[in-house]
Amino acid sequence: MLPDAVEHHHPALAHQFDSLAQQREAAALGMWVFLVTEVLFFGGLFATYAVYRWWYPDAFAAASHELDILLGGTNTAVLITSSLTMALAVHSAQLGRRRLLLLFLIATMALGCVFLGIKGVEYYHKFVEHHVPGPGFEFEAAYARQAQIFFSLYFIMTGLHAVHMIIGIGIMLAMFWMSWRGRITADYYNPIEVSGLYWHFVDIVWIFLFPLLYLIGRHA
């Protein structure tokens, strides 16, 4: 594992590391640890969700029926596709194919923007329908109170997810810039790899959010 002379003077090797391999492992481990914190961050929300859904199953089902399953489903497809383009971007980076890499990064960002656009439309609908929690909240009388908890959870969970998407698109922009400048090569692609991990994670969060929020009580 001793670093060879060439690697030791690689321009991308930071001073605190001995070799590119060590640097790459450290970066990947760092991102995994970060994703663990993210799991717990959303975990607090999922725990809250679980408690209230357990207590108020009918109100949650009624409120869930107000969500637009078509838009939500489309968004799920959009995100899964973006994960594919992200994986292809990492693959292109590993192969050192810069033009393909740039292309896939653009595709990933574009899909991310589509997702946010659709999300915005959904938020707008909820606003028009007075389903935003607060003094102006309106819902069928029997479930008016607990539906408000559902929508509070809906907004904070999808809202934080959207914030993560925006950050992800920002990271992709940075990756695009680095790739454009030729800083990503076949022997130094950890930024792309690590950003890919983050992107997939945000995607997976949605995979959980979609059924939990949109599909309650729809199996019958």
């Binding site: 809250t48 929690p133 607060g134 003094p135 408000q148 509070s152």
Partner: peptide, 10 residues
Amino acid sequence: HFGFFDPAVG
């Protein structure tokens, strides 16, 4: 005015 911890909305 979200209602996660507010007894008034459950």
